[in-house]
């Protein structure tokens, strides 16, 4: 296993794109978060906005890069035929997948932590200048605050889980383009359909099973009662999606020829 981890780490480290993609995760997440923080204003008491969620809204953007990174880690091997060498060297296929998941997950954990930390810090100052102050009923954004810490840690875990989901899907379909299409479809289509459907029961059902909407519930720090699903339960839904994709991919990897 240690060998497998080292192999995967070397492969991912020496591919030119990895560094750029990790930098992009941080830049895009922080960029959209900062832009959103600048865009909102709180001029009266109780603006109905959730400061933690605003500063972390860049996750919706950053997750795409995470998906690309994870999909490329598998799709690249199939694209070049490298997978046959990998499986010849490490014949236990589940070991390969677990090692890949561990390395990708660890990289996303590092990049995601940096992105979330900078986003919250930037949000703290920008939102305070835009009127999210004590006077307007909003505590200044701080990681010492329990719900904010949960939102921040949850966002990092969200990115990791999106990475694992993408890894599983890519292992199952063996093609980078199709895999990224499926992953982004899974993430983005649920919110769109939920916005069109008018039956409130169906809206709630869709939001509860949607990997993105349910998973991002972990970012909410205000109005927890009106959430379709609890913060940690929502992240649990995304973990189920990721676990399902990984085990499906792992099964297919065992059953099929490389």
């Amino acid at each position: 296993m240690k060998e497998a981890l080292r192999v995967e780490w070397t492969k991912l480290r020496t591919v030119a794109g990895t560094g750029w993609l990790l930098a992009a995760v941080v830049l895009l997440t922080v960029g959209l978060g900062v832009a959103s923080s600048f865009a909102v204003n709180c001029s009266g008491v109780g603006c109905g906005q959730d400061p933690a969620k605003i500063s972390l809204s860049g996750i919706a953007f950053g997750q795409v890069v995470v998906a690309v990174l994870a999909v490329s880690a598998v799709g690249g091997e199939y694209g070049t035929g490298m997978i046959r060498v990998t499986l010849a060297a490490i014949p236990r296929r589940s070991t390969v997948l677990v090692a890949k998941a561990a390395v990708v997950g660890a990289l996303v954990l590092v990049a995601g932590s940096a992105a979330v930390l900078v986003s919250v810090l930037a949000g703290r100052f920008i939102l305070r200048d835009n009127g999210f102050t004590e006077a307007h009923g909003h505590a200044v954004l701080s990681l010492a605050d329990g719900p904010v810490l949960r939102a921040a840690v949850g966002s990092v875990l969200y990115l990791v889980l999106v990475g694992l989901l993408s890894l599983g899907v890519a292992t199952a379909v063996r093609d980078a383009a199709a895999a990224i299409g499926i992953v982004l479809g899974l993430l983005y289509l649920f919110p769109i359909v939920a916005a069109v459907v008018s039956d409130p029961d169906w809206v709630e059902r869709l939001q509860r099973i949607s990997p993105m909407t349910a998973g991002l519930a972990v970012q909410a720090t205000t109005g927890l009662d009106s959430l379709p699903i609890g913060p940690w339960a929502g992240l649990g839904v995304l973990s189920l999606w990721a676990a399902g994709a990984l085990s499906g991919g792992g099964l297919l990897l065992r059953l099929r020829d490389a």
Binding site: A39, V65, A176, L184, I192
Partner: peptide
Amino acid sequence: RSAGAVSVVIVVMVLPYILAIASVLPSGP
């Protein structure tokens, strides 16, 4: 690169619509 191209196009065509309709952003942006 297929993965890069697919995600770039999806991000510029689908993500703005989601941010707009799912009220992730206020109405001005």
